[in-house]
Write a protein that binds this DNA or RNA. Structure first.
Lengths: 245, 245
DNA sequence: CGCAGATTGCGAACAGTGTGCGCTATATTG
DNA sequence: CAATATAGCGCACACTGTTCGCAATCTGCG
């Protein structure tokens, strides 16, 4: 009795849907996931809302993507593709070329602040095509600077760790601002105030918050801090290179 | 009718429970959350399982902790308390003291691999007591080395970013091993094989995986890579210090 | 001691999550 | 055209974090 309960309503709406859209595909899913992440952040990414944005059911996505974790891996590799690593041209220009790479990586992370929250989970499986292309080129830069392959990798890991670490903490600040809808200016001010209060037993920290902590815009401040640490690093590389001759 | 349906059974089991245990408190909750995280990883931390381990209902926790995010912040500050930052003694020993600090921070992260997955989410709100104590001491070390306060902070941020970045990626590898129950030895071997296959168009990467990538235990390898990058950093600091005189 | 008031614990409920299963409609191949 | 493979999806399951209101207990005051 009433075995065709659910087929009845679909009779009227039939013959639609198959070619009214470019159809589902891994590429389309990844692209839409990326734009959703950029717009609303990591918490807004659920299979259901992603499906809705693609005019599809949530479970349809599983025909093209194994699970949510794999989807995130794909999106992460996608954004790694935005990082510009210059082709090795002049071997003497290694310092500038490394700086360009570092800035590009940081800029990518700041454009997509949600990556900070997944870099610790997605186990950096270095097998994505974009990440591999980027690694190849970075190794090339370090080789051109004078490292052998093993040391090139070590130096590369170190530089990448620095950039990811510092840009990641900037990004998580950006995400916090976006989530809480607070004004960054106001936020730095109130953080200074409470920090000064709490740091009663930490004279250096107290001095730091009253004297050093930025009064105005955070952008310049962050930029300066970043290049400061980057130069520290590149100086260290210079030392290592000249010591090895 | 039957308004006392649920009070009846409790009559027999009454007068228990209040003092049979140390009672709930933020400290006890944080401690239990920490041991749960260390045992089973970040995915296993739910308010319900945590409540169960404390012989309490899930919702009882909310009397002592605002929400899960705040709980995680508390636990993170707790483990920061394990990091040993030496008191500044001999100003000439800054290099060794910074190295000790860096090693201690990395060791903490490797003892608690789940921190890698939350450091990007918990916006590093630097107000936890342990984190503030640690920051104060690190600033002191850099000051003793010869930096003014602003540069001490910059150098400190850079060093911390490096350590967190590289130890974080080690930790996410450890978490992956724990989750998948795979043998690390076996895992590095099979990663090498697939990487060699995929890297058909990346000669440096291919050479890297065949020649450089570790055949045996990953521990030594990771330790060496870490001190290599750390020395790079400390060399850079030396350069900066001598340039500033 | 007794009793008001604050504090603590908790069961039920809500809205949401990722994902496996089995059915149907379509596309592809012979 | 028929047979098979594939894509889409509704339903369902087991969980999640968190709110709310009630009951049990602890606290301080008379």
């Amino acid at each position: 009795m009433a075995a065709n309960k659910q087929t009845i309503p679909s009779v009227w709406a039939r013959q639609r849907k198959r070619r009214e859209q470019p159809a589902l595909s891994p590429e389309r899913i990844v692209a839409e996931a990326l734009s959703l992440l950029d717009e609303k952040g990591i918490d807004a990414l659920s299979m259901r809302t992603l499906g809705t944005r693609l005019n599809a059911g949530a479970t349809s996505l599983y025909r093209h993507v194994a699970n949510k974790d794999e989807l995130i891996e794909l999106v992460v590799d996608e954004v790694y593709g935005e990082v510009e690593v210059p082709e090795v041209a002049d071997p003497k220009a290694w310092r500038e070329q490394l700086a360009v790479t570092a800035h590009s990586l940081r800029a990518m992370i700041l454009r997509h602040p949600w990556v900070a929250s997944v870099l610790g989970q997605v186990a950096l499986v270095e097998l994505g095509p974009n990440l591999m292309r980027q690694s190849e080129r970075m190794l090339g830069l370090f080789r051109a600077a004078g490292f052998d392959l093993a040391d090139a990798d070590r130096a590369n890991s170190a530089l990448t760790a620095y950039v990811v670490g510092i840009a990641g903490s900037e990004a998580s600040f950006l995400s916090l601002m976006a989530r809480s809808g607070q004004d960054p200016q106001e936020w730095t001010r109130s953080l200074r105030e409470t920090a000064e209060q709490i740091a009663e037993e930490q004279p250096l920290l107290k001095e730091y918050y009253t004297q050093v902590w930025p009064k105005g815009d955070m952008h310049e401040w962050n930029d300066e801090n970043f290049v400061y640490g980057l130069d520290l690093f590149l100086d260290g590389i210079t030392v290592r290179l000249s010591a090895q001759d």
